[in-house]
Amino acid sequence: MPQGIIEALRQDHDEVRQMFAQLETATGDQRRDLFHRLVGELIRHEVAEEEILRPVSKRDAGEEIANARIREESQAEELLKEMEKLDTDSPEFTAKLGKLRTEVERHAEAEETQEFPKVAQKESPERLEQMGKVYEAAKKAAPTRPHPSTPNTPVANMLAGPFAAVLDRARDAVRDAMKSNS
Rank of each mutant, 00 (worst) to 15 (best):
Q3N: 14
G4L: 03
G4A: 06
A8Y: 02
A8G: 07
A8Q: 10
D12W: 01
D12Y: 00
H13A: 15
H13Q: 13
D14E: 15
Q18C: 12
M19L: 15
F20E: 02
Q22L: 11
L23M: 10
L23Q: 02
L23G: 04
E24V: 07
E24F: 06
T27V: 11
G28E: 04
G28R: 06
D29C: 07
D29L: 15
Q30S: 15
Q30R: 15
Q30N: 12
L34R: 03
H36N: 11
R37G: 10
L38I: 08
G40C: 02
E41R: 10
E41T: 14
L42R: 00
L42M: 07
I43D: 00
R44N: 08
R44W: 04
H45G: 04
A48S: 02
E49W: 01
E50W: 03
E50F: 07
E51A: 10
L53Q: 09
R54C: 13
R54N: 14
V56N: 06
S57R: 04
K58I: 11
R59W: 10
R59Q: 14
D60V: 06
G62L: 02
N67W: 01
I70H: 02
R71P: 00
R71Y: 12
R71W: 12
E72Y: 05
Q75L: 14
Q75V: 14
E78Q: 15
E78S: 06
E78D: 13
L80Q: 02
K81M: 13
E82M: 06
E84F: 07
E84Y: 07
D87G: 08
D87I: 11
T88E: 00
T88D: 01
D89Q: 07
D89Y: 05
E92T: 13
E92G: 05
E92Q: 11
F93E: 02
T94S: 11
A95W: 01
G98V: 12
L100N: 02
L100P: 00
R101S: 14
R101F: 08
E103W: 09
E103S: 08
V104Q: 01
R106L: 14
H107I: 13
A110Y: 06
E111Q: 09
T113I: 13
V119L: 07
V119M: 04
A120H: 01
A120C: 06
K122D: 05
K122N: 06
K122P: 00
S124N: 06
P125V: 07
P125F: 05
E126R: 07
E126K: 14
R127I: 05
L128W: 00
E129D: 12
Q130C: 03
M131W: 04
G132I: 08
K133M: 09
Y135W: 13
E136Q: 11
A137D: 05
A137K: 12
A138Y: 00
A138Q: 02
K139M: 09
A141P: 01
A141D: 08
T144S: 11
T144A: 13
R145D: 10
H147Q: 03
H147R: 07
S149L: 07
T150Y: 01
P151G: 08
N152A: 15
T153A: 08
T153R: 08
V155W: 12
N157S: 11
N157I: 05
M158G: 09
A164Y: 03
A164P: 00
A165R: 01
A165G: 03
L167T: 07
D168R: 01
R169S: 10
D172W: 03
D172M: 11
V174F: 08
D176M: 11
A177C: 13
A177G: 15
M178A: 15
K179W: 11
K179F: 12
K179N: 14
S180K: 13
N181Y: 12
S182N: 14
